[in-house]
Design a protein around this nucleic acid. Structure first.
Lengths: 119, 119
DNA sequence: GTTTGTACTGACAAAGTTGTCAGTGCCGCA
DNA sequence: TGCGGCACTGACAACTTTGTCAGTACAAAC
């Protein structure tokens, strides 16, 4: 059932990575950083993801306190996910990671040194 | 054969994580940040790691330009690994990750809020 | 002359992660 | 009356990552 590989570890680096880690978590956070979204809306906005995986990742991010799940009790159900206050503290970390990664990609295909959009 | 899960991705975050990601990479980098070390020395200093896994991770880190492998042509072989200049650019990123992770761990077991050593 | 240590590889098993598929209850639309 | 959309679950297959085990060559120590 778990999406992120590492069980509880006392290493802060592992602790951080276990929150970020997961095939789609980066993309989900990036999409939600614009605005809150409904489940199906998110699914449609992330090409290639399946509903199953999306929901598993969302649940983990909620459990880790990064996302907030708000549900209106109507039929059909309407659930909206947004980044929590705590989740916002992740943003500067992701920016540092992203900056290094962008530079690393430039190193890799130094042939086409055009700027790449973050995600 | 690969140790890190993601194949080449254009996402800078994934690109960065693919370098860090791997059960023992954080620990290896942390150990080598003190000083260069020989393969077997590293193996002994990381409880629980197997030689096989250590070597696979080392090879990937070398391939990614993070580590440098220096070999003296003697018998028995003597190989020494050290962090490259490029690898040093990772350090500030790891520090940011570590800081967030430390805070996250405090959140988790808020019961015992003593400072945790990095790694 | 058997053992120990070095740095590594190959074949394979065991975990762990991701993906697929079917099914749930209810409403609105045609 | 049948279909699609919503948010989700369970069972399970496929793939990835990690771990286990044996084996390589050579020299020095015992």
């Amino acid at each position: 059932m778990p999406v992120s590989k590492k069980e509880l570890s006392e290493c802060p680096i592992d602790a951080m990575l276990s929150v970020i880690d997961g095939r789609w978590k980066g993309t989900i956070l990036w999409r939600l950083s614009d605005r809150p979204m409904r489940t199906s809306e998110l699914a449609r906005s992330i090409p290639g993801i399946t509903e199953r995986m999306l929901i598993r990742h969302l649940q983990e991010l909620v459990r880790d306190g990064i996302l907030i799940r708000r549900q209106e009790n109507v039929v059909p159900p309407c659930v909206r996910y947004s980044i929590s206050k705590y989740g916002l503290t992740l943003v500067p970390v992701l920016e540092v990671i992203c900056a290094w990664g962008r530079n690393h990609l430039r190193r890799l295909h130094a042939a086409s040194p055009h700027a790449l959009p973050c995600k």
